[in-house]
Amino acid sequence: MSNDTTLVLGATGKTGRRVVARLRLRGTPVRAASRSSRTRFDWTDPGGWDEALRGVAVAYVVAPGVPGPVHEFVARAEAAGVRRLVLLSGRGADTWGDSTFGLDMRSAEDAVRGSALEWTVLRASNFDQNFDEDVFHAPLVAGELALPADAVPEPFIDVDDVADAAAAVLTGTAGRHAGRIYELTGPRALTFGEAVELISRASGRPITYRRISPGEYAATLVEQGLSEDDAHHVAEMFVLMERGLIAATTDDLATVLGRAPRTFEDYVVRAAAAGAWRG
């Protein structure tokens, strides 16, 4: 069997489903894999990995929520004849120091960067779409977003820009992006308070932002159904962000795509028009 397929892990997730659609539109042979896809892939069940990797030339990898499994996956990929890996990671992962946040992503980076394969790492800032597709959505609809973030801004990035970058790297000529780490950000950094104000204005609804402590936020997440470990993990991200080490913007998206990233305002207009924050 010739190796010409692109494997997309996390194919039903926020980036994965967008990457799959882009590859299909380009005419790229693609295998969408996740726990609920036709090609099943589960990080806790290595028994199914070899079948997912059969005939694969390039793989898009989204790290699992725990450190470790990507090392075994990389070894299986090498044995299967995969030539290129593209990993989605977190912005500024090598600046996180002693933070307990992102151990899963740092482990995945170690596995991919230490492999014999051609690799590229896409480190993305927080997604714009966290405000309408993820944990921030319900509080916004309820009228108040309370987070442990103050005056340090975040260069939010549109997940469609991340998917565009991933598709470009996955389908690019051999060697063009080899050994590169791209720090993907939006065009400017906003505080969470500024982001909520833009959402409130575009949606026409009174939505406010309130700063709380990391401990209060973790407790809120537990009340909403997250495990204590997962809640601590999310809260620790904000502690890390408050250090200000990942607040700056970069030109890396333009390097990959030849264009500027979408603005947060553009995202807000599109999401509001789609009714994202209707009460």
Results as ranks from 00 to 15, higher is better:
Leu145Phe: 04
Thr12Ala: 07
Phe73Pro: 06
Phe156Cys: 04
Ile199Ser: 03
Val269Leu: 13
Thr185Lys: 01
Thr6His: 03
Ala33Asn: 03
His233Asn: 14
Asp4Ile: 04
Gly90Gln: 13
Leu184Ser: 02
Glu154Gly: 09
Ala254Leu: 14
Gly204Thr: 05
Asp252Pro: 05
Gly275Leu: 11
Ala32Leu: 05
Glu118Trp: 01
Pro261Cys: 06
Gly65Gln: 10
Gly258Thr: 15
Gly81Glu: 11
Gly179Cys: 06
Tyr267Arg: 10
Val58Asp: 04
Asp150Ile: 05
Gly90Ala: 15
Ile212His: 08
Gly244Cys: 11
Arg26Asp: 11
Glu51Tyr: 05
Leu122Thr: 01
Pro29Arg: 11
Val256Leu: 14
Trp43Glu: 01
Gly204Val: 06
Pro206Gln: 05
Glu228Asn: 11
Arg270Gly: 11
Arg40Ile: 09
Val159Ala: 13
Gly204Ser: 06
Ser107Cys: 12
Gly258Met: 13
Glu197Thr: 10
Met237Pro: 11
Ser99Gly: 12
Arg113Lys: 12
Gln129Lys: 01
Arg243Ala: 13
Arg18His: 06
Ser213Leu: 10
Arg40Lys: 08
Ser125Trp: 01
Arg84Cys: 07
Val58Ala: 07
Val70His: 00
Ala274Val: 11
Asp252Lys: 11
Val66Leu: 06
Ala80Arg: 04
Pro64Tyr: 00
Phe264Gly: 03
Leu25Thr: 12
Ala165Lys: 07
Glu51Phe: 07
Ala231Glu: 06
Thr5Gly: 02
